[in-house]
Amino acid sequence: MAGISLHDLISTLIVILFLLVMFIAWLMGKNKKMPPYANPEGYERIDELMHRSSEEGKALLMGLGEGFSGLNGSLGDQTSLMVQRILMSRSVFNDQPAQSYSGDGALACISQMIVHGAYDKAMAVELFRPEHNQLTGLSGLSWMAGLLPELARSDNTGLVLAGSLRPESLIITDMAERKEIPVVAATGDISGQAALFASGAPVLLGEDYYLPAIGDINQASYQHSARVLNLFRILLAAGLLLAAFLKLSGVLP
Protein backbone atom coordinates (compact mmCIF):
# COMPACT_ATOMS: atom_id res chain seq x y z
CA MET A 1 0.00 0.00 0.00
CA ALA A 2 3.05 2.27 0.45
CA GLY A 3 3.27 3.12 -3.24
CA ILE A 4 -0.43 3.71 -3.89
CA SER A 5 -1.03 6.75 -6.07
CA LEU A 6 -3.70 9.41 -5.60
CA HIS A 7 -5.31 8.13 -8.79
CA ASP A 8 -5.59 4.57 -7.45
CA LEU A 9 -6.77 5.81 -4.06
CA ILE A 10 -9.61 7.82 -5.58
CA SER A 11 -10.56 4.93 -7.89
CA THR A 12 -10.77 2.55 -4.93
CA LEU A 13 -12.75 5.10 -2.94
CA ILE A 14 -15.24 5.50 -5.80
CA VAL A 15 -15.75 1.74 -6.05
CA ILE A 16 -16.29 1.36 -2.27
CA LEU A 17 -18.63 4.35 -2.11
CA PHE A 18 -20.59 3.15 -5.10
CA LEU A 19 -21.09 -0.30 -3.56
CA LEU A 20 -22.17 1.36 -0.32
CA VAL A 21 -24.69 3.53 -2.16
CA MET A 22 -26.01 0.45 -3.98
CA PHE A 23 -26.57 -1.20 -0.60
CA ILE A 24 -28.27 1.89 0.89
CA ALA A 25 -30.51 2.18 -2.18
CA TRP A 26 -31.44 -1.47 -1.81
CA LEU A 27 -32.41 -0.85 1.84
CA MET A 28 -34.41 2.24 0.84
CA GLY A 29 -36.18 0.20 -1.84
CA LYS A 30 -37.58 -2.06 0.86
CA ASN A 31 -39.76 0.85 1.96
CA LYS A 32 -42.84 0.37 -0.19
CA LYS A 33 -43.98 3.96 0.43
CA MET A 34 -41.14 5.37 -1.72
CA PRO A 35 -42.71 7.05 -4.78
CA PRO A 36 -41.58 5.40 -8.04
CA TYR A 37 -39.41 7.14 -10.62
CA ALA A 38 -40.73 7.80 -14.13
CA ASN A 39 -39.29 5.62 -16.90
CA PRO A 40 -36.81 7.24 -19.31
CA GLU A 41 -38.86 8.64 -22.19
CA GLY A 42 -36.92 6.89 -24.94
CA TYR A 43 -37.61 3.48 -23.45
CA GLU A 44 -41.31 4.26 -23.29
CA ARG A 45 -41.21 4.70 -27.06
CA ILE A 46 -39.97 1.12 -27.36
CA ASP A 47 -43.15 0.07 -25.57
CA GLU A 48 -45.15 1.73 -28.36
CA LEU A 49 -43.12 -0.13 -30.98
CA MET A 50 -43.73 -3.43 -29.18
CA HIS A 51 -47.49 -2.84 -29.22
CA ARG A 52 -47.36 -1.83 -32.86
CA SER A 53 -45.43 -4.98 -33.74
CA SER A 54 -48.00 -7.26 -32.13
CA GLU A 55 -50.95 -5.34 -33.62
CA GLU A 56 -49.58 -5.21 -37.18
CA GLY A 57 -48.09 -8.70 -37.11
CA LYS A 58 -44.81 -7.37 -38.45
CA ALA A 59 -41.29 -7.87 -37.14
CA LEU A 60 -39.56 -5.54 -34.74
CA LEU A 61 -35.86 -5.33 -35.57
CA MET A 62 -33.17 -4.80 -32.99
CA GLY A 63 -29.62 -3.64 -33.70
CA LEU A 64 -27.47 -4.68 -30.76
CA GLY A 65 -24.45 -2.56 -31.58
CA GLU A 66 -20.93 -3.39 -32.54
CA GLY A 67 -19.99 -5.53 -29.59
CA PHE A 68 -17.98 -5.73 -26.44
CA SER A 69 -15.01 -3.85 -27.83
CA GLY A 70 -14.43 -0.21 -26.91
CA LEU A 71 -14.19 1.43 -23.51
CA ASN A 72 -17.42 2.56 -21.88
CA GLY A 73 -19.33 0.90 -24.67
CA SER A 74 -18.14 -2.50 -23.54
CA LEU A 75 -20.85 -2.48 -20.91
CA GLY A 76 -23.26 -0.77 -23.22
CA ASP A 77 -23.83 -4.09 -24.86
CA GLN A 78 -24.83 -5.69 -21.58
CA THR A 79 -27.55 -3.05 -21.53
CA SER A 80 -28.62 -3.83 -25.07
CA LEU A 81 -28.96 -7.47 -24.02
CA MET A 82 -31.17 -6.34 -21.13
CA VAL A 83 -33.34 -4.44 -23.62
CA GLN A 84 -33.50 -7.52 -25.80
CA ARG A 85 -34.55 -9.64 -22.82
CA ILE A 86 -37.36 -7.19 -22.10
CA LEU A 87 -38.46 -7.15 -25.74
CA MET A 88 -38.42 -10.93 -25.95
CA SER A 89 -40.51 -11.31 -22.82
CA ARG A 90 -43.36 -9.63 -24.73
CA SER A 91 -42.87 -10.73 -28.33
CA VAL A 92 -42.47 -14.50 -28.16
CA PHE A 93 -45.98 -15.17 -29.44
CA ASN A 94 -46.12 -12.36 -32.01
CA ASP A 95 -46.85 -13.36 -35.62
CA GLN A 96 -43.38 -12.14 -36.47
CA PRO A 97 -40.87 -12.44 -33.61
CA ALA A 98 -38.36 -9.69 -32.84
CA GLN A 99 -35.16 -10.13 -34.84
CA SER A 100 -31.77 -9.00 -33.59
CA TYR A 101 -28.51 -8.21 -35.35
CA SER A 102 -25.17 -8.06 -33.54
CA GLY A 103 -21.76 -6.75 -34.46
CA ASP A 104 -19.72 -9.15 -32.34
CA GLY A 105 -19.44 -12.91 -31.90
CA ALA A 106 -19.89 -13.10 -28.14
CA LEU A 107 -22.77 -10.65 -28.33
CA ALA A 108 -24.45 -12.74 -31.04
CA CYS A 109 -24.03 -15.95 -28.99
CA ILE A 110 -25.33 -14.39 -25.75
CA SER A 111 -28.20 -12.80 -27.63
CA GLN A 112 -29.11 -16.17 -29.12
CA MET A 113 -29.03 -17.73 -25.65
CA ILE A 114 -31.33 -15.00 -24.32
CA VAL A 115 -33.83 -15.47 -27.12
CA HIS A 116 -33.77 -19.24 -26.71
CA GLY A 117 -34.27 -18.74 -22.98
CA ALA A 118 -37.33 -16.56 -23.64
CA TYR A 119 -38.91 -19.26 -25.81
CA ASP A 120 -37.95 -21.88 -23.27
CA LYS A 121 -39.63 -19.89 -20.49
CA ALA A 122 -42.76 -19.56 -22.60
CA MET A 123 -42.61 -23.32 -23.29
CA ALA A 124 -42.50 -22.64 -27.02
CA VAL A 125 -38.96 -23.70 -27.95
CA GLU A 126 -40.21 -25.06 -31.27
CA LEU A 127 -40.87 -21.47 -32.38
CA PHE A 128 -37.22 -20.47 -31.88
CA ARG A 129 -35.35 -19.67 -35.11
CA PRO A 130 -31.59 -19.09 -34.82
CA GLU A 131 -31.59 -16.99 -38.01
CA HIS A 132 -33.59 -14.35 -36.15
CA ASN A 133 -30.51 -13.54 -34.03
CA GLN A 134 -27.62 -13.05 -36.34
CA LEU A 135 -24.15 -11.68 -36.40
CA THR A 136 -24.18 -9.16 -39.23
CA GLY A 137 -20.68 -7.78 -39.29
CA LEU A 138 -17.49 -7.50 -37.32
CA SER A 139 -16.84 -3.81 -37.01
CA GLY A 140 -18.89 -0.68 -36.57
CA LEU A 141 -19.23 -0.19 -40.31
CA SER A 142 -19.74 -3.79 -41.39
CA TRP A 143 -22.30 -4.35 -38.63
CA MET A 144 -24.17 -1.40 -40.02
CA ALA A 145 -23.67 -2.68 -43.57
CA GLY A 146 -25.26 -5.99 -42.61
CA LEU A 147 -28.22 -4.37 -40.88
CA LEU A 148 -29.12 -1.98 -43.73
CA PRO A 149 -30.34 -4.61 -46.24
CA GLU A 150 -32.41 -6.30 -43.51
CA LEU A 151 -33.99 -2.97 -42.68
CA ALA A 152 -34.86 -2.48 -46.32
CA ARG A 153 -37.23 -5.47 -46.31
CA SER A 154 -40.88 -4.52 -46.32
CA ASP A 155 -42.19 -6.57 -43.38
CA ASN A 156 -40.70 -4.53 -40.53
CA THR A 157 -42.66 -2.47 -38.06
CA GLY A 158 -39.88 -0.70 -36.21
CA LEU A 159 -36.24 -0.67 -35.24
CA VAL A 160 -34.64 -0.49 -31.82
CA LEU A 161 -30.98 0.43 -31.91
CA ALA A 162 -29.35 -0.28 -28.56
CA GLY A 163 -25.69 -0.86 -27.73
CA SER A 164 -22.35 0.57 -28.77
CA LEU A 165 -23.38 2.72 -31.69
CA ARG A 166 -20.96 4.78 -33.68
CA PRO A 167 -21.98 8.13 -35.17
CA GLU A 168 -22.12 6.33 -38.52
CA SER A 169 -25.35 4.70 -37.29
CA LEU A 170 -27.03 7.86 -38.50
CA ILE A 171 -27.22 6.20 -41.90
CA ILE A 172 -29.39 3.46 -40.37
CA THR A 173 -31.85 6.01 -39.03
CA ASP A 174 -31.80 7.73 -42.42
CA MET A 175 -32.72 4.53 -44.22
CA ALA A 176 -35.43 3.80 -41.65
CA GLU A 177 -36.83 7.28 -42.26
CA ARG A 178 -36.88 6.64 -46.00
CA LYS A 179 -38.73 3.37 -45.42
CA GLU A 180 -41.02 5.06 -42.88
CA ILE A 181 -39.94 2.68 -40.13
CA PRO A 182 -39.94 4.26 -36.64
CA VAL A 183 -36.63 4.01 -34.79
CA VAL A 184 -35.60 4.35 -31.14
CA ALA A 185 -31.87 4.75 -30.51
CA ALA A 186 -30.08 4.08 -27.22
CA THR A 187 -26.34 4.19 -26.78
CA GLY A 188 -23.75 4.99 -24.15
CA ASP A 189 -21.36 6.37 -26.77
CA ILE A 190 -21.37 10.17 -26.57
CA SER A 191 -20.36 10.82 -30.18
CA GLY A 192 -23.04 8.33 -31.22
CA GLN A 193 -25.58 10.25 -29.13
CA ALA A 194 -24.46 13.53 -30.73
CA ALA A 195 -24.90 12.21 -34.26
CA LEU A 196 -28.18 10.43 -33.56
CA PHE A 197 -29.56 13.55 -31.88
CA ALA A 198 -29.67 15.13 -35.32
CA SER A 199 -31.90 12.33 -36.59
CA GLY A 200 -35.65 12.22 -36.10
CA ALA A 201 -35.41 9.17 -33.84
CA PRO A 202 -36.01 9.38 -30.09
CA VAL A 203 -32.54 9.09 -28.53
CA LEU A 204 -31.66 8.18 -24.97
CA LEU A 205 -29.11 10.72 -23.81
CA GLY A 206 -26.38 10.46 -21.18
CA GLU A 207 -26.73 7.78 -18.52
CA ASP A 208 -30.43 7.12 -19.26
CA TYR A 209 -29.33 4.43 -21.68
CA TYR A 210 -28.09 2.26 -18.81
CA LEU A 211 -31.49 2.14 -17.13
CA PRO A 212 -33.84 0.20 -19.36
CA ALA A 213 -37.43 0.05 -18.15
CA ILE A 214 -40.25 -0.48 -20.59
CA GLY A 215 -43.77 -0.13 -19.24
CA ASP A 216 -44.03 -2.27 -16.13
CA ILE A 217 -41.17 -4.56 -17.15
CA ASN A 218 -37.86 -4.43 -15.28
CA GLN A 219 -39.27 -1.95 -12.76
CA ALA A 220 -37.55 -3.32 -9.63
CA SER A 221 -34.16 -3.18 -11.30
CA TYR A 222 -34.83 0.24 -12.78
CA GLN A 223 -36.11 1.80 -9.56
CA HIS A 224 -33.04 0.56 -7.69
CA SER A 225 -30.66 1.78 -10.42
CA ALA A 226 -32.29 5.21 -10.59
CA ARG A 227 -32.10 5.56 -6.80
CA VAL A 228 -28.41 4.55 -6.82
CA LEU A 229 -27.54 7.08 -9.50
CA ASN A 230 -29.54 9.87 -7.85
CA LEU A 231 -27.87 9.26 -4.49
CA PHE A 232 -24.39 8.92 -5.96
CA ARG A 233 -24.90 12.07 -8.04
CA ILE A 234 -25.65 14.11 -4.92
CA LEU A 235 -22.66 12.56 -3.16
CA LEU A 236 -20.43 13.30 -6.15
CA ALA A 237 -21.63 16.91 -6.39
CA ALA A 238 -20.97 17.48 -2.68
CA GLY A 239 -17.56 15.80 -3.00
CA LEU A 240 -16.60 17.92 -6.00
CA LEU A 241 -17.62 21.18 -4.28
CA LEU A 242 -15.70 20.24 -1.14
CA ALA A 243 -12.63 19.10 -3.09
CA ALA A 244 -12.62 22.31 -5.15
CA PHE A 245 -12.81 24.40 -1.99
CA LEU A 246 -10.03 22.43 -0.31
CA LYS A 247 -7.85 22.65 -3.42
CA LEU A 248 -8.42 26.38 -3.68
CA SER A 249 -7.55 26.91 -0.04
CA GLY A 250 -4.35 24.88 -0.47
CA VAL A 251 -5.37 22.02 1.84
CA LEU A 252 -5.33 19.45 -0.97
CA PRO A 253 -1.97 18.93 -2.69
Binding site: H7, L71, S74, Q78
Partner: peptide, 22 residues
Protein backbone atom coordinates in the same frame (compact mmCIF):
# COMPACT_ATOMS: atom_id res chain seq x y z
CA UNK B 1 -15.57 -8.24 -19.50
CA UNK B 2 -17.69 -6.74 -16.72
CA UNK B 3 -14.76 -6.80 -14.28
CA UNK B 4 -12.42 -5.16 -16.78
CA UNK B 5 -15.06 -2.59 -17.62
CA UNK B 6 -15.65 -1.70 -13.95
CA UNK B 7 -11.93 -1.10 -13.45
CA UNK B 8 -11.58 0.63 -16.83
CA UNK B 9 -14.50 2.95 -16.20
CA UNK B 10 -13.31 3.88 -12.71
CA UNK B 11 -9.62 4.29 -13.46
CA UNK B 12 -9.87 5.39 -17.07
CA UNK B 13 -12.88 7.72 -17.04
CA UNK B 14 -14.27 8.68 -13.65
CA UNK B 15 -11.07 9.39 -11.70
CA UNK B 16 -9.23 11.36 -14.43
CA UNK B 17 -12.33 13.42 -15.21
CA UNK B 18 -13.01 14.24 -11.55
CA UNK B 19 -9.35 15.02 -10.86
CA UNK B 20 -9.10 17.40 -13.81
CA UNK B 21 -12.10 19.38 -12.50
CA UNK B 22 -10.56 19.73 -9.04
Amino acid sequence: LAAFAVVGVTRGTLTPQLLSIV
